[in-house]
């Protein structure tokens, strides 16, 4: 009997949260036995199996006793579990929850499906409307390979009138204007020429000012025949202005007006460098005339004859010091010869 009931009730126990207490009461009335005992048949069955397995090796007398005690224990354990289950079942408000959840699942499913569709559509339209396909001229411009204003095949720049274009629309009554999708109410400007003149007079009374024409550093003497009002005093530590200039006014003006050729300072620096070079060269000539042949020897390039001479010197040194002076003499004479040759070449 218990096994049949277990089989019957198993589907219902698999959804414990969805069953209302009313249903439980109904079932209890129908079946005519205690729900609590039956509900925990799975645990009972497991315990029974365990006990049977454990007693299969033991005596048959003790079998009934042990079984009875185990049954009692299992009953106590399952009772707690049943209470818990009943509590959880009673916390569920209504049986119609099942229906509600199913409809919400459908709604969520529809939402996800629509979202997916929208994303697919957007990606598709974006891919189609993309102006610069890879490798196109527009793409080259975007990547900075080509200058946009030099594109021969691009469409010409067609200027849109700022007062009459799709973004700016005026109403027929001239009372509103629509700009960038927003409608604004218009009000006429009421300022008259007379009002403007009144303001000009007011300001001329309020602000007496002469534009400074001379900039002087603090501490400089005021030049004669200069209106003190037109002097602007520049502090020595002014962050960006200075009265000090290393070029005079005429020269600065000529520099501004220069259209062609090398700029003044570049030219001046070049000339100065050239002059310096020339003077250096002249100095070198002069100094080379009085150059010490001993020091000049250090700058000579080694060549074969000299190498041979060096070998000879080494040999002579190995033979004896008496001939050393002669070899030195020859080397010096050679050195002096090369020096004179250099001077001639220059």
């Amino acid at each position: 009997m218990a096994s049949i009931l277990t089989l019957r009730l198993c589907p219902s126990t698999s959804y414990p949260r969805l069953i209302s207490p009313n249903v439980i009461q109904l079932r209890r009335a129908e079946l005519g036995f205690d729900w609590c005992q039956l509900n925990c048949t799975s645990e009972n069955r497991r315990a029974k199996k365990f006990v049977i397995c454990a007693l299969s090796e033991g005596d048959s007398d003790n079998h009934d006793k042990v079984l009875k005690s185990v049954k009692d224990k299992v009953f106590v354990n399952t009772r707690n579990a049943v209470v818990k289950f009943q509590e959880s079942v009673s916390s569920v408000p209504h049986i119609f929850v099942t229906k509600r959840i199913s409809t919400s699942y459908i709604a969520v499913g529809i939402c996800i499906a629509t979202m997916f569709l929208v994303i697919v559509m957007r990606v598709f339209t974006a891919r189609n409307s993309r102006p610069s396909r890879p490798g196109s001229v527009a793409d080259l411009v975007r990547r900075g390979q080509l200058r946009s204003d030099r594109r021969g095949i691009s469409s010409t720049l067609k200027y849109e009138d700022p007062f009459n274009n799709p973004m700016v629309k005026i109403s027929k009554t001239n009372s509103t204007v629509e700009m960038c999708g927003k409608v604004y109410r218009l009000a006429p400007v009421t300022l008259t020429r007379e009002q403007q003149n009144v303001h000009i007079k007011r300001r001329s009374r309020a602000y007496q000012w002469k534009r400074p024409t001379i900039f002087l550093k603090e501490g400089d003497a005021v030049p004669p025949d200069v209106d003190p009002d037109t002097i602007r005093w520049i502090p020595a530590n002014h962050p960006f202005a200075t009265t000090v200039s290393d070029i005079d006014e005429d020269l600065a003006q000529t520099n501004v007006y220069q259209k062609h050729g090398v700029p003044f300072r570049i030219k001046a620096e070049h000339e100065a460098l050239q002059r310096k070079l020339e003077t250096l060269q002249n100095d070198q000539k002069f100094s080379k005339l009085t150059i010490d042949p001993g020091t000049a020897r250090n700058f000579e390039r080694p060549f074969k004859t000299q190498l041979k001479l060096d070998d000879q010197v080494e040999e002579k040194l190995s033979n004896g010091p008496s001939r050393h002076t002669q070899s030195d003499h020859t080397r010096n004479s050679l050195g002096s010869n090369t020096n004179t040759e250099d001077i001639q070449h220059t």
Binding site: I234, A241, T242, S245, E249, A252
Partner: peptide
């Protein structure tokens, strides 16, 4: 840099 304004607005 500092602007040499010794010339005033002439520049």
């Amino acid at each position: 840099s500092k602007l040499p304004i010794g010339f005033g607005g002439k520049a």
